[in-house]
């Protein structure tokens, strides 16, 4: 798979919904259209809900990957300001 270098990374391990999405959304808001946000998280539900909510908000989900027993990495491209 092609490797994408994110413009910003956040670690939201330890957070649960809705703060996972709140943090992810604030991070996306602070970025420019076209930039990529990488999110490291360990709350399983958020590995599904963040991509869904981001798509609802008009952003592009590039990657949802389980990287260990506990952690997921998401990559989101900001398509909409």
């Amino acid at each position: 798979m092609e490797q994408t270098i994110p413009d910003k990374k956040i670690n939201i391990k330890g957070l649960v919904c809705p703060y996972t999405f709140v943090k992810a959304k604030l991070a996306i808001e602070s970025m420019e259209v076209g930039q990529i946000l990488e999110i490291l998280l360990d709350y399983e539900e958020a590995s599904r809900s963040i991509p869904k909510s981001m798509e609802d908000h008009g952003q592009k989900v590039l990657k949802v990957e389980k990287v260990s027993d506990t952690d997921w990495v998401l990559q989101i491209r900001k398509d909409k300001d």
Partner: peptide, 22 residues
């Protein structure tokens, strides 16, 4: 910059596309 308390207090606002952090 929101404090942790503010993130929690206003989370249902921030989540709304029409509101957000801005």
């Amino acid at each position: 910059d929101f404090t942790d308390d503010q993130l929690m207090r206003y989370s249902r606002h921030i989540i709304l596309p029409e509101v957000g952090g801005k």
